[in-house]
Amino acid sequence: MDKIFTKPKSLRDIPTHYCPGCGHGVAHRLVCEVVDELDIREKVIGVTPIGCAVIAYDYWEFDCCEAAHGRALAVATGIKRMRPHNLVFTYQGDGDLAAIGTAETIHAANRGENLTVIFINNAVYGMTGGQMAPTTLLEQKTATTPLGRCAKLEGYPLKISELLSCLPGVYSIERVSTDSPAKVLSAKKAIKQAFINQMEGKGFSLVEILSACPTYLGLKPIDSVKWMAETMTKEFPLGKIK
């Protein structure tokens, strides 16, 4: 009998450290499926973030480099400029990419670095214990906004993708979600296109993936994807931004 579904070659067969219902596992797998389908495993170099996905490289069967919190796009710039024939991507969370690394993100985008960015937006800091993220929704309760995020004190959810889309150096930005199987499939399509863009030398491509963090949303996995579909996508509408 033919095997029609299998683990990607790029994905290591090890137990997961992510919480039940976490979106990282899905996103990791999608990256690996794309890497396999494009047959770039021996050419790809991943730059991993600080946060829950700090050990993403434990799951990935290809070359990886660590970066300090927020500096992934600076490290990736150094790699890609010296190895233009390799495919270089960063995998970053909302705190990494849109708070502590805002400068690195904006300037790598503005230079039009020929890179692929996988941006995981789950509206909260996971690894450190559920603090407010730059993308935390108004009224959303976190460890550091116990009464809910208040615009007057904590500002608004930062729409970094929309902000980046204003820059002429940016080639492509798309926001996708992982709250349903159909959306997971379109997320994969967006990731694949972002890698193809780099292979064709088109420049800076970013895929923002809305992802669930049931643990710090305080919701069951099933309810957290419902929250994503009904609440989070209102603030972060899906689709091609640029």
């Binding site: 970066a67 300090a68 500096r71 600076a74 490290v75 150094g78 400029r81 010296m82 190895r83 400068a103």
Partner: peptide
């Protein structure tokens, strides 16, 4: 040669190039 956006970025870019 890259004129970086900050010292933080500059040293991280060096880390990337050195890692290669």
């Amino acid at each position: 040669f890259i004129q970086s956006e900050s010292e933080l970025a500059a040293i991280s870019m060096v880390m990337g190039a050195a890692a290669c």
